[in-house]
């Protein structure tokens, strides 16, 4: 029952997110707004609802599963982009590797080393 109660909490915050998106005409999906609202709510209450914690783990693990149905379609419309594949794949693979490299370098430059035990040891390597 706890899982269902947690799910209801998530649905309520999703609906609240939808309301905020609609009222303020935000160019963002209601899920993201709902997530921010729920984080704020936890902060206001000073703790998390255990029901929500129970449901969140399996749902987050499902996020990867949930893009799969959309991916299937690409195999059926591939012919439409037949002459573009070289450009598309180069852009995606080279572009992503480049952006990973620049974000890692940027973050390493500007993120201060953590003082938490355990992480500090890991950080010492590159400081």
């Amino acid at each position: 029952m706890s899982v269902l109660r947690g799910f209801l909490w998530l649905l309520i915050f999703l609906l609240l997110g939808q309301a905020v998106v609609g009222l303020f005409r935000l160019p963002m999906p209601s899920g993201v707004i709902g997530m921010l609202l729920l984080t704020l709510f936890f902060g206001y209450r000073g703790g998390m609802n255990p029901d929500v914690v129970h449901i969140s783990q399996p749902l987050i693990a499902m996020l990867a599963l949930l893009i799969m149905p959309g991916v299937v379609e690409i195999f059926f419309v591939a012919g439409q982009f037949a002459d573009q594949w070289a450009a598309i794949l180069t852009a995606l693979i080279a572009g992503t590797l480049l952006s990973v490299l620049s974000s890692l370098l940027l973050m390493r430059r500007y993120l201060p080393a953590s003082d938490a035990p355990g992480m500090a040891a890991g950080n010492a390597g590159h400081e």
Partner: peptide, 12 residues
């Protein structure tokens, strides 16, 4: 939708 909202837990 609900899975995105659930990300509030690790975020908090």
């Amino acid at each position: 939708g609900p899975a995105t909202v659930a990300l509030a837990v690790p975020l908090y």
